[in-house]
Design a protein around this nucleic acid. Structure first.
Length: 263
DNA sequence: AATATATTCAACCGCTCGAGT
DNA sequence: GACTCGAGCGGTTGAATATAT
């Protein structure tokens, strides 16, 4: 059995926290503490995963957080501790009361690294610029070219990307979540997430899904359709001995067709 | 004023670790 | 010992903002 997903992704909110959410979280923790982060959002009535709540509390809402710019002394301390401890941000944060590991990490990457090692930073940035330029150049030639010469006609449809949490939960994911990432990496792997679902977590599939999916005429799909490893499977269902593969294809086909309006 | 580029930083993701069973 | 689960950590991303052209 695989690892359970860190949170139920379905319907959970992502992105920046609103002041209302902050207030709810603060009020709940003040009242009940945070013994169990996983259960907390449910108890507090927040549509967030426990991980997200924990991060928000630790990095921003905790009463002992020190806001504002780092002092010269703090910066020197970070540089000194980084020499000794390396990227162990939480250990460094432990020596700087009121500062969080995330904050220290950000300050290191944005300010201190340059100061300590200007040559390396310059080299890295130069390299990045060159790579970006190459990618930019290549993406102009082959904007939808994917792994091993694979061109999936649906990937150049902007409606496909980015992959929303809802879509990824339907087990169809693209390792690149937006078009810029695809152009940067010039690769996009269609993969099946190996997440396990309990009966409670498994998304409810209503009968219309099955009736539509099973009655679907797959041969009517336009262009080649590809399996998870990039193999074409236009001849869907023909002499297929592998049940897993069969259902995987059913899900993939159905997911694409249902999530998108007709092209 | 408009556009391009750089910087910042909040938040997410995937992994590891340790406790519990 | 093997396994599961929650917490925590570090790397990375990307939207917002600032600065340069």
């Amino acid at each position: 059995m695989g690892r359970a997903p860190c949170c139920e992704k379905m319907g959970l909110k992502k992105g920046p926290w609103t002041p209302e959410e902050d207030q709810i979280l603060i009020a709940h923790i003040r009242r009940y503490g945070h013994g169990n982060w996983r259960a907390l959002p449910k108890q507090a009535g927040l549509l967030r995963c426990g991980k997200s709540c924990r991060l928000r509390w630790i990095n921003y809402l905790r009463p002992d957080i020190k806001r504002g710019n780092f002092t010269k002394e703090e910066e020197e301390t970070i540089i000194h501790l980084h020499e000794k401890l390396g990227n162990r941000w939480s250990a460094i944060a432990a020596k700087l009361p009121g500062r969080t590991d995330n904050e220290i990490k950000n300050v290191w990457h944005t300010h201190l690294k340059k100061r300590v090692n200007p040559n390396q930073v310059a080299q890295e940035s130069k390299k990045k610029t060159q790579v970006d330029a190459m990618i930019e150049k290549e993406s102009k030639h082959t904007p939808t070219q994917l792994n091993s010469g694979l061109t999936h006609p649906r990937f150049d449809d902007p409606r496909l990307l980015p992959v929303s949490p809802e879509r990824s939960y339907s087990d169809i994911s693209c390792t690149a979540t937006d078009s810029s990432t695809i152009s940067r990496e010039n690769t996009c792997n269609v993969s099946v997430k190996e997440e396990s679902f309990s009966s409670e977590e498994f998304p409810v599939i209503d009968e219309s899904f099955w009736s539509e999916t099973l009655s679907m005429d797959f041969t009517a799909l336009e262009g080649p359709t590809f399996g998870p490893l990039g193999e074409p499977f236009g001849s869907f269902g023909a002499s297929n001995d592998d049940d897993m593969d069969f259902w995987l294809r059913v899900f993939m086909e159905a997911g694409d067709l249902q999530a998108l309006p007709p092209i």
